[in-house]
Design a protein around this nucleic acid. Structure first.
Lengths: 254, 254
DNA sequence: TTATGTGAAGTGTTTCACAGCC
DNA sequence: GGCTGTGAAACACTTCACATAA
C-alpha cells in the first residue's frame, strides 16, 4: 500500500461517515418518489420504510448533514431532496464517459437513473472500429483513439469501465492520465491507480456468490436441526462444518 | 446480521462475518488466476495485493475458515480455491433465472463470470411476447407466463431481477411464491420479501453518486490544500480501496 | 528465518433510549 | 402527544504486533 500523503479529508466539520454517504442515494430515491407524488412532509419512520432501513439509522444519518427536520412533524420533502442532492454533489453536472460498449456498456448508456441525477453521458467509447459511429442510446460511439481529447474537451472527471477484464487496466491508465479522477469499474479486475483517484467496483458475479453462500447456509440449517455439536476431529483439512449436499465435483473449472 | 426467525442453535463458530464473506469471491478470483498460471503456493502478502486488500485482513479472513496455510510458506493455491469454493457453496450447481431481458438482462446472460462459478442460467424470462423465442446468449427467451413452472421444474432458488422498477415487486412476489429464496435485484426499488428470503441489490446509479460525492470533496479540498501542513505521519492514502464496501445491507427482516 | 494465525487494541457503525422542541 | 436529534452503549470490522510453527 502506498504511503501516500493525500491525507484523509481534512474536511473539518464535514466528516460524514462512508456508511452514511452510501445510503444518501437511497434516501434521495425514496424522497424523489414522494416528491413526485407531491407529498409535502415525511417522518423518519415512513421515509426509513421507503428506503429499506430503520428509522434510528436514518435519523442518525441525517444528523450528520444538519438539523433539517422539525420535531413533532418530520422532514420537508423538497428541502431534504435539495440538501441531499447538494451534499452528494448532484446539483452540478457530471459529464461521464463509458468505455467499452458491449451489452453492459449499452445497458448503462440507456439507464435512465443517470440523467435524472446530474450525470450526463458525454461519450461512449469503444476500441472496435466497427462500433464507431453506431448509435447507442442516441449517442454516437467513438473510437478509443480519441479518448484523451474527449476527456479534456468535456472536462470529464468520472469514467465508467465496461471493457473485458484484459484491457481494463490500460483503459484505466489512459483515463487517469487524461485527467479522470473517479472510476466506476465493472470489469472483474483489481485496478491500480495513483493516489487521489477513487475506484469503485461492481462485480456482478460477486453478488451472486454472496447469495449462494447464504443460500447454502439456509439449506444446511434445515438438516442441522437434529445434529448438534460435532465433535470435530480438528485435524487438518476440516473446517468447522461441511457442505450440506455431501458430494461435490472436483475443484473449480480452470 | 442475518436475523432470520430460524436462528442457528448452538452450532458453534459457524459465524463467518459478513464482511469476510463479501471478500471471499475476491480472493477466489485472484486464486483462480494464480491457478491458471500454475502457481503452486502464495503468501498472504502476494495474494492480498492481487485481491486489492491488505494482508492482515486476508489472514484474519482465512482464519475464520480454518488453518489452511503453512507457516513460513504460505497457502496452497489449489487447496485454497477448493476450500473457498466449498465455503461459498460454489461446488454445487446453482440454476438461476433472469427476469427482464433488456440490455442489462442480456449483459448478465452473456456474462462469463457466472458459468465459471457454478451458476447456470436456467432460463431467461421476459413479459414481452415479442421477446419469446429470441435467442440471447444462446438461450431461448421464455414468456413470463411460465415462470412458476420453470422455477419448480429446474429447482431454481436464485432469481435475478432486471426488469423496469415498476414491475420489480410483482416479479419478486411471483419468484418468492414459486420457491425462490435469494434474489439479486438490479431494479432501483426496495423490494419487500418475507422472512427467510435474501435480497441483494445492485444500483448502478448509486455507485456513481458515491463517486460524485468524493469527487466534489476533492474539488473543495484543493482550495483548502495549502493550510494544513500535513501533520499525522501515520496517515494512509485511503484510495486503493476499491469496493462498494459501504454496501448497504439490503436484506432484512420485515 | 519466514510467514501464518490470533488475541488485543483501535476504529467505524448501528442501535438504544431519552432529552428537547414543536 | 409526537417526532427529531443525539449522547452513550453495543456491536462489527480492521489493524497491530507477536507468539507459534514449519
Amino acid at each position: 500500500m502506498a504511503t501516500g500523503r493525500t491525507h484523509r479529508p481534512a474536511t473539518r466539520s464535514r466528516g460524514i461517515p462512508e456508511a452514511t454517504v452510501a445510503r444518501l442515494p437511497l434516501y434521495l430515491r425514496a424522497l424523489t418518489a414522494l416528491s413526485e407524488r407531491s407529498v409535502p412532509t415525511v417522518s423518519s419512520e415512513e421515509l426509513a420504510a421507503a428506503a429499506g432501513v430503520n428509522s434510528a439509522k436514518l435519523r442518525k444519518d441525517f444528523s450528520y448533514l444538519g438539523s433539517y427536520g422539525t420535531r413533532g412533524v418530520g422532514y420537508d420533502v423538497e428541502y431534504l431532496v435539495y440538501q441531499i442532492s447538494r451534499e452528494l454533489g448532484l446539483t452540478q453536472d457530471w459529464p461521464v464517459v463509458i468505455v467499452g460498449i458491449g451489452n453492459l456498456g449499452a445497458a448503462l448508456a440507456n439507464y435512465g437513473g443517470f440523467a435524472s441525477r446530474g450525470f450526463r453521458v458525454a461519450a461512449l467509447i469503444d476500441a472496435d472500429p466497427a462500433m464507431a459511429g453506431k448509435q447507442v442510446a442516441g449517442i454516437s460511439v467513438q473510437h478509443s483513439d480519441g479518448l484523451e481529447k474527449i476527456i479534456s474537451d468535456n472536462g470529464v472527471s468520472i469514467g465508467v469501465i465496461t471493457t473485458p477484464p484484459g484491457v481494463a487496466q490500460q483503459v484505466c491508465d489512459r483515463l487517469v492520465a487524461a485527467g479522470v479522477t473517479s472510476i466506476l469499474n465493472f470489469a472483474p479486475t483489481v485496478l491500480t491507480v495513483p493516489d487521489g483517484v477513487d475506484v469503485r467496483k461492481v462485480d456482478l458475479s460477486i453478488e451472486l456468490q454472496i447469495l449462494a453462500f447464504h443460500e447454502q447456509r439456509k439449506a444446511g440449517e434445515e438438516a442441522a436441526a437434529n445434529e448438534s455439536a460435532v465433535p470435530a476431529p480438528a485435524g487438518r483439512a476440516d473446517s468447522t462444518d461441511q457442505g450440506p449436499d455431501g458430494d461435490v465435483p472436483a475443484v473449480m473449472p480452470a
